[in-house]
């Protein structure tokens, strides 16, 4: 990936004003009522954990489980960083919901033509050079956006310069890296962050898929070989039967 964008969320700075939620809902034309959890009408929400506020959104993974799961390729990792959803391809199988290690995608269960919904880091805005709506709305810069390598450096600089920070950037190693990073002064597991694999999730299925050529060639060859043997036996038995019938000695054709 040449140059991609990423968001850094600094939990120590968030004041829980919900401006990000409101900006997101406004951009997508959703009703402004705050919601407690991600939903088809809430692509980002702010959770309260004690006196800390944690903003949730799609992590826009570097090698996303959802994009590898999607059988029609509706979900894609773009070069710019966001993981986008092409609704015109989706068939509604919901494997992306099963696959996502962060449980982010939501389904429009109440609709008769339901689609998958999730944050795409404002791909359309970012493609035009604008910031994601949530980042732009943040009055205290608890969320910032930038080139991924620079954002990662900034996160590194912050956690090293101040002892209050946990010495881990959530998202730097998780599932092989994401495009949304969190830094915090409270251990991540106390803030409801899931412990996930450090390898990219698609690695888990790549091995199984890699076995296809072996199954087809070895399995097919084996079965074809076995068929050749059975068929040959049958032919030999027939020929022997014919032979003994011709010699007319009434010999048992199954003498072996």
């Amino acid at each position: 990936m040449p140059k991609s964008k990423a968001i850094l969320i600094d939990i120590t700075k968030c004041i829980g004003c919900l401006s990000c939620e409101a900006a997101c809902k406004q951009l997508h034309g959703f009703s402004q009522d705050p919601e407690p959890k991600l939903s088809p009408t809430a692509f980002t929400i702010v959770e309260e954990h004690g006196d800390r506020y944690v903003r949730r959104m799609c992590m826009n993974c570097q090698d996303p489980a959802c994009a590898s799961a999607c059988l029609v390729g509706a979900l894609k990792k773009t070069e710019l960083g966001p993981v986008t959803y092409e609704s015109s391809k989706c068939i509604g199988c919901r494997y992306c919901l099963v696959a996502c290690p962060f449980n982010v995608p939501r389904y429009q269960w109440s609709k008769l033509a339901p689609f998958v919904t999730k944050c795409d880091m404002c791909y359309a805005r970012q493609a035009k050079g604008q910031s994601p709506a949530c980042v732009e709305a943040c009055p205290v810069q608890a969320s910032i956006v930038g080139w991924r390598d620079e954002i990662l450096e900034e996160a590194q600089r912050r956690i090293l310069s101040d002892t209050k920070y946990e010495k881990h950037i959530y998202g730097s190693e998780e599932v092989g890296g994401t495009s949304v990073f969190y830094i915090s002064d409270v251990p991540f597991e106390k803030l409801g962050f899931t412990k996930v694999e450090s390898q990219p999730m698609p690695v888990l299925t790549a091995n199984a898929l890699g076995d296809i050529p072996t199954v087809v060639t070895v399995g097919g060859g084996l079965l074809a070989g076995l068929y050749w043997i059975t068929n040959r036996r049958k032919l030999v038995a027939l020929a022997e039967a014919a032979e003994s019938a011709r010699s007319g000695k009434g010999k048992d054709p199954h003498h072996d």
């Binding site: 299925t205 199984a208 898929l209």
Partner: peptide, 16 residues
């Protein structure tokens, strides 16, 4: 849209 996988391919997907 059940026919979509015939023309829209994702070889990384087990479901495909």
């Amino acid at each position: 849209r059940i026919w979509h996988p015939i023309v829209m391919w994702n070889r990384r997907s087990v479901l495909f």
